[in-house]
Design a protein around this nucleic acid. Structure first.
Lengths: 201, 201
DNA sequence: TCAGACATGTAAGTCGTTACATGATTCA
DNA sequence: TGAATCATGTAACGACTTACATGTCTGA
């Protein structure tokens, strides 16, 4: 694959849980070649429109397999919303509430996006063809087609299922955060009521 | 507050959703002073044990309030687990399953930690005193005490509630991810069964 | 007395983004 | 014909981490 393709693949299919910039990508490809984990194929095309295809080496493949088995770090420990929420703890309850409402909206929108993409993918999991939107976006990644041979059909289904499941992960996350919003809003509500009563007494 | 205190505060109370390193911290404090958003107080103490207290300026305070109201970016778009999960999509189902099992364990442990901290905090929300563990950790942040005056009790309760809610956010997130694990595992199970049947036929 | 916490800072380096430069090709 | 897309790359910068340097004070 060429760098451009990788970028397209990531943007199209993995954008809700991963991102790469060209800067990072080309530099990394260069480093992989230096380390013998990938080889740079011949340039095809000319001038600004030439393509450089990279291929993984045997060493690269085994390194990759080792990496897959290695521990992943726990999902990020930096949430700007929660930081603001915490730092607002001495301010007015109303302001804190506003903050949570904004978060609720944001997560609600996310959830809607995930659900829309999810609907698109359902078909391919049932052994049907990949939806055009995705086929186009993931184009050069050479998705296996579900039509012909049994083994190929199995692989295709598996790929579709896994892509679908990454989306489902987003759905579950967003749902969890929305459930939290409900809880937080009613807790703040209760606090406001209590405070008001306290002031009267 | 001094840089050291801020670091302690973040490590003790915010560690599950934020982190700062000394390098970042002292450099940032310096920049804030340059920009007139904070002032550097006199050094107290001598030699290696001196303390430098920083205080926010009026300008800093208004900048801070503006920042609180500004949009936060959606929680991070980089999840190493999901990347591995996606990239494993052409491998054996059994390996993918292993990956998910690891994630399940990790998230289960996280959930247990959150629940433990949560129990600690419950008391303070009920208007009781801050638990010693937290009082010590958050020490210099000058937590308001819930004992005396009505207004102070209100503020203290609010602070405790908000800290508790940040923890609850972690609980909801972990629960959502664990629910996903269940779903993913049974989907992979179904796939394996189907594939086996396909091969026999 | 001596390990460990206290406390501040700097330097080096990694990781990642944005902006830019270059130039071919496609298509309205 | 000219804007958009294709495609590769570099340079500059900012955010962040790790490691180090320095010296003091506390408590077992």
């Amino acid at each position: 694959m060429a760098g451009y393709d990788i970028k397209k693949l990531v943007d199209a299919g993995l954008s809700h849980f991963w991102s790469e910039s060209y800067g990072q990508l080309y530099q990394t490809l260069g480093r992989l070649v230096e380390q013998g984990l990938a080889v740079r194929g011949e340039d095809s095309g000319t001038g600004g429109r030439r393509r450089v295809a990279y291929a993984i080496t045997e060493q690269g493949r085994s390194e990759f397999r080792a990496w897959l088995k290695k521990d992943f770090e726990a999902p990020s420990v930096r949430n700007e919303f929660l930081l603001k929420f915490f730092l607002a703890s001495r301010g007015e309850v109303a302001e804190v509430r506003q903050l949570v409402l904004g978060y609720q909206t944001q997560q609600g929108e996310r959830l809607a996006e995930y659900r829309a993409s999810e609907a698109l993918l359902r078909g391919a999991v049932e052994g049907g063809p990949w939806p055009d939107e995705l086929r186009h976006a993931l184009g050069r990644v050479a998705l296996e087609d579900g039509a012909e041979e049994s083994a190929a059909r199995g692989r295709s289904t598996q790929q579709a299922l896994i892509l679908l499941l990454t989306l489902r992960h987003g759905v579950h996350s967003a749902e969890g955060r929305l459930a939290w919003c409900e809880e937080a809003l009613s807790a703040l509500e209760a606090l406001a009521v209590e405070t008001a009563r306290g002031e009267k007494v």
